[in-house]
C-alpha cells in the first residue's frame, strides 16, 4: 500500500503545480475502456479517463448521459462488462463495494443515502468504520480498548463536524434535518473516512444559491487543506467550471470531451451537445 502511494506521487514525471499553488500528482485512478450495459441498454460506451492525485475532476453531461453510472462503476456498485479500473497503479480485481470503500474511496449520493434512524453524530461515525478494529467481544465489554477507540475516533469526527459547521445538530436524528443540511452531513460522513479519493454525486443538486456557495467552499477547502482527490458529477455548469481542474464531458454514454475547463468550453462537440443548449 505504501509503495503504491509513493509510486504515484513521487515517481510520476508529469506532476505539476496549479495557478493557486496546489500540487497535482500522478494518476490515482485510471479507467480504461469502460463499457456498461443493462440488458440491451448501453449506459457507458468505451470510456477512458484518469483522475490525478490532488485534483478536482468533474464529470458533466446532460441527463441520462451515464454520469451516475460512471460513478457507480468507480465505487464498485456496478460491474462493467468491459474495461479495467486501475487504482494506485494496480488493476482492481473484481470486488464488492465495501472492499472498494476499504481501499480508501468514499462517496456521497445523488438522492441522499443517510441512515435515517440514527443521529447525525452516529451517521458521521459510520464513516470511521474502516479505522475501528476492536472485535465484538471487546466492544461488548466496552471498558478498555473499545471505549478508547470510540473516543479517539469521536475526536476525528468532531474535527469534521467543526470543519463543516454542523456542531449544533450533532445529536439530531438525520430524518428531521432539512435537505441542505442532510447533504452536508453526507459529506461529513464521507470526509470522516479520510478518503484518498472522494466521489461526489451531484453535491449541489436541489440547493439554493447560498447553499451552493457554502458547498463549493467546503469542496475547495477539503481539496486544499487535506489534499483530497475529488471526482464530482454536477449539473450546474458555472459551478463546475469554477471548481474543477479538469472536466470529462459525457453524452449518451460516450465521452465527447476531456480537459481543463477552458479547453472543454471551446470544444465544438461539447458546445453542440451541452453548452450550446444550456447557455441559451
Amino acid at each position: 500500500m505504501m509503495d503504491a502511494m509513493n509510486m504515484s506521487t513521487d515517481t510520476n514525471p508529469d506532476s505539476y503545480v496549479t495557478d493557486d499553488g496546489r500540487t497535482i500528482g500522478g494518476v490515482v485512478m485510471d479507467l480504461k475502456n469502460i463499457t456498461l450495459r443493462f440488458g440491451g441498454v448501453v449506459a457507458i460506451k468505451d470510456i477512458s479517463f484518469d483522475i490525478r492525485e490532488g485534483e478536482i475532476r468533474a464529470i458533466i453531461g446532460p441527463n441520462g448521459a451515464g454520469k451516475s453510472s460512471m460513478l457507480n462503476v468507480i465505487s464498485g456498485f456496478y460491474k462493467p462488462q468491459e474495461g479495467e479500473v486501475w487504482f494506485r497503479g494496480k488493476k482492481r480485481p473484481p470486488m464488492r463495494p465495501y472492499q472498494v470503500a476499504q481501499q480508501g474511496l468514499a462517496r456521497t449520493f445523488q438522492n441522499i443515502a443517510l441512515f435515517d434512524g440514527m443521529s447525525v453524530l452516529d451517521n458521521i461515525m459510520t464513516g470511521r468504520l474502516n479505522y475501528m478494529k476492536t472485535n465484538m467481544l471487546q466492544q461488548a465489554i466496552w471498558w478498555g480498548k473499545a471505549e478508547k477507540e470510540e473516543l479517539e475516533n469521536r475526536e476525528k469526527v468532531e474535527k469534521v463536524i467543526d470543519f463543516l459547521e454542523i456542531q449544533h445538530i450533532r445529536k439530531t436524528p438525520v430524518g428531521r434535518l432539512p435537505y441542505g443540511l442532510k447533504k452536508r452531513v453526507e459529506l461529513a460522513r464521507a470526509l470522516a473516512a479520510e478518503p484518498s479519493l472522494l466521489l461526489l454525486d451531484e453535491p449541489m443538486a436541489g440547493m439554493n444559491v447560498e447553499e451552493k456557495e457554502d458547498m463549493s467552499r467546503f469542496i475547495l477547502d477539503v481539496n486544499d487543506e487535506f489534499g483530497t482527490t475529488i471526482a464530482l458529477i454536477e449539473h450546474d455548469m458555472g459551478v463546475v467550471m469554477d471548481l474543477s481542474d479538469r472536466v470529462v464531458v459525457m453524452d449518451y454514454g460516450k465521452k465527447i470531451g476531456d480537459g481543463t475547463p477552458d479547453e472543454v468550453r471551446n470544444n465544438q462537440d461539447v458546445i453542440d451537445a451541452y453548452l450550446g443548449v444550456a447557455h441559451d
Partner: peptide, 29 residues
C-alpha cells in the same frame, strides 16, 4: 447496550436503514 452504541451497532443500523448505502460506505453486509 455496549454493542449497539459502538461500531457494531452502527453497522447493524446502517444495514437496517439503507443496506446498499451501508455496503458502499464500507460495511460488509
Amino acid at each position: 447496550r455496549n454493542l449497539t452504541r459502538g461500531m457494531t451497532g452502527r453497522k447493524w443500523m446502517g444495514i437496517r436503514d439503507m443496506d446498499i448505502a451501508a455496503e458502499i460506505i464500507g460495511v460488509n453486509p
